[in-house]
């Protein structure tokens, strides 16, 4: 009996693998585009920068200081 390398099962698995590839690619694209939309909707980009759980002096509101010697 000749050994057939390509079984119907292989093509089906192949199709499934490509299906998973397409779904994962679509998911990455979805999250990427969602991020772009969410960030551009912020208006003031500092709102996004501020959300990194670290004190950022550059983003702090200026505090009124008293002149020296008083």
């Amino acid at each position: 009996m000749a050994i057939k390398v390509e079984h119907e099962l292989h093509s089906r698995r192949n199709g499934r693998n490509y299906g998973v590839l397409i779904l994962l690619g679509a998911f990455v694209a979805l999250v990427f585009l969602l991020t772009i939309v969410k960030v551009t909707q912020l208006g003031d980009a500092r709102k996004f920068e501020a959300n990194d759980h670290v004190i950022r002096p550059a983003l702090a509101e200026p505090v009124a200081t008293t002149p020296a010697g008083q």
């Binding site: 009996m1 050994i3 079984h7 119907e8 099962l9 089906r12 698995r13 199709g15 499934r16 299906g19």
Partner: peptide, 19 residues
């Protein structure tokens, strides 16, 4: 040579079955 009998796996799901 005796026939090599394969397990019947043709029922394995395709993408359309999951859909």
């Amino acid at each position: 040579m005796a026939d090599v009998s394969m397990q019947d796996t043709t029922r394995e799901a395709g993408m359309g079955d999951y859909f």
